[in-house]
């Protein structure tokens, strides 16, 4: 229960912003400090009876794998809906992009909304 923010109820939508996500996360008031933390909040929200959603860039999947494999899987907590910005450009995103399908194969998110990078556009 929020003491000071004056909200009726916060949405069960947690994550870390990304430039390609900004149009999709306009309804979010507070951003998490890491993607793994967002996954932890989502687990708590699910235990509280909510249907949470998380959003992140593909690089956030690397940070999330730990909690997926050590909490979600062994405790059989359903994974939240994932809003994923699959970055490919510029080049510093390339290696995570190359392995994003592997990360998704390991994590087994069932509901994914993807935002793909457009060819050669860097922002």
């Amino acid at each position: 229960m929020l003491e000071s923010m004056g909200w009726v109820e916060m949405k069960a939508k947690f994550g870390v912003p990304g430039s390609k996500l900004k149009e999709k996360i306009k309804d979010v008031e507070i951003y998490c400090t890491s993607e793994e933390e967002a996954m932890a909040l989502a687990a708590g929200a699910w235990l509280a009876g909510k249907q949470p959603e998380v959003y992140m860039q593909n690089t956030g999947l690397c940070r999330s794998l730990n909690i997926i494999l050590t909490l979600y899987k062994p405790y059989k907590i359903p994974l939240p809906k994932l809003l994923l910005s699959n970055r490919k450009y510029p080049f510093h995103h390339y290696y995570v992009w190359k392995y994003t399908e592997d990360l998704l194969r390991i994590s087994k998110f069932k509901k994914i909304e993807r935002i793909e990078d457009e060819e050669n556009k860097s922002n």
Partner: peptide, 11 residues
């Protein structure tokens, strides 16, 4: 703590 925050937000 993250799980606790997620719980406390909605309960």
């Amino acid at each position: 703590l993250g799980i606790g925050i997620g719980l406390a937000l909605f309960l």
